[in-house]
């Protein structure tokens, strides 16, 4: 039972990855080309062409790295939430024809996004190594920060997916909220430039602590701030438990509606 679920999740993830580049000559190689081009754009455009500098650092590429290490995890988070929200309508054919374990679909989305994240972060490591950056123990925490971020994403996605079957507006609402959330998270700007009231509001943004964790590890050579991450871990798991409870309550109706 468990092994069949695992093979179902792995097969869905493999298909997702292969289908994304199906028919193209370079195939899966595009999965490396896209993030590589993005990373080089951030580093070259912001570092060399625009000449933007990160406050407190003299490194020419620091701002590019700052943006890249914020956007990569944000992309995974945002895609997981958005794709999870639409998962029941996107996989309607599979759900109605096969006896699909619905929670497995969320694991497959998260796994698929994790794969993209791993590729991008690996390329980032290669660029940092070529730049001569030194590696420290904070890097060991990267998988855990990402893991926490994905738990939060699945928690939100599972809830919105369950509700979006009955209220379709939720799909559009999630896209809008994610857009606003992106700009409310210090990914392309530094939190210090915000006015006082916005900095105080930032305490309520869970993605701030996660993105800040990545920034601390990659840009400042420091460790993430642990206390907010512990609180966020508990909140994310409570949210996921609540979402799962809601999903279990609605599961029969979801299948009937589809």
């Amino acid at each position: 039972m468990v092994s069949s679920r695992i093979s179902f999740i792995l097969e869905m993830t493999r298909r997702d990855f292969v289908e994304r580049f199906a028919g193209s000559i370079l195939g899966s190689l595009w999965a490396f080309i896209f993030p590589l081009v993005n990373l080089l754009v951030y580093l070259i455009v912001f570092g060399k062409i625009i000449g933007a500098r990160l406050p407190g650092t003299s490194d020419m590429y620091a701002y590019g790295i700052y943006i890249a290490v914020g956007i990569i995890p944000w992309g995974s988070f945002s895609n997981t939430v958005t794709r999870s929200t639409n998962i029941f309508s996107d996989k309607k054919n599979i759900i109605t024809k096969l006896n699909t374990p619905l929670p497995s679909l969320f694991v497959h989305v998260s796994l698929s996004e994790a794969l993209t994240f791993i590729i991008s972060i690996t390329l980032m490591f290669i660029i940092l190594a070529l730049k001569g950056a030194s590696f420290h123990c904070g890097y060991f925490l990267l998988p855990f920060v990402f893991y926490l971020q994905q738990i939060l994403a699945i928690g939100i996605g599972l809830l919105t997916a369950s509700l979006s079957v009955f209220i379709t507006d939720i799909r559009q609402l999630v896209s809008v909220v994610m857009q606003l959330w992106f700009w409310f998270t210090p990914i392309i700007y530094v939190v210090d430039i915000l006015p006082d009231f916005a900095q105080k509001l930032m305490v309520l943004n869970p993605m701030f602590y996660i993105v800040d964790g990545y920034h601390n590890i990659f840009v400042y050579g420091a460790y993430p701030v642990f206390k907010p991450l512990i609180i966020l871990t508990v909140i994310s798991h409570l949210l996921l438990a609540f979402s799962y409870m809601t999903f279990r309550y609605l599961e029969k109706d979801i299948r009937d509606f589809l």
Binding site: L141, F144, L148, I230, V234
Partner: peptide, 22 residues
């Protein structure tokens, strides 16, 4: 729910004890 609680404990353990290890 049990596995979720264990998962939570796992991450809390990592983020809570890592500073001590450091």
């Amino acid at each position: 729910y049990m596995l979720l609680a264990l998962n939570c404990l796992y991450l809390v353990g990592i983020f809570g004890c890592y500073p001590l290890v450091l």
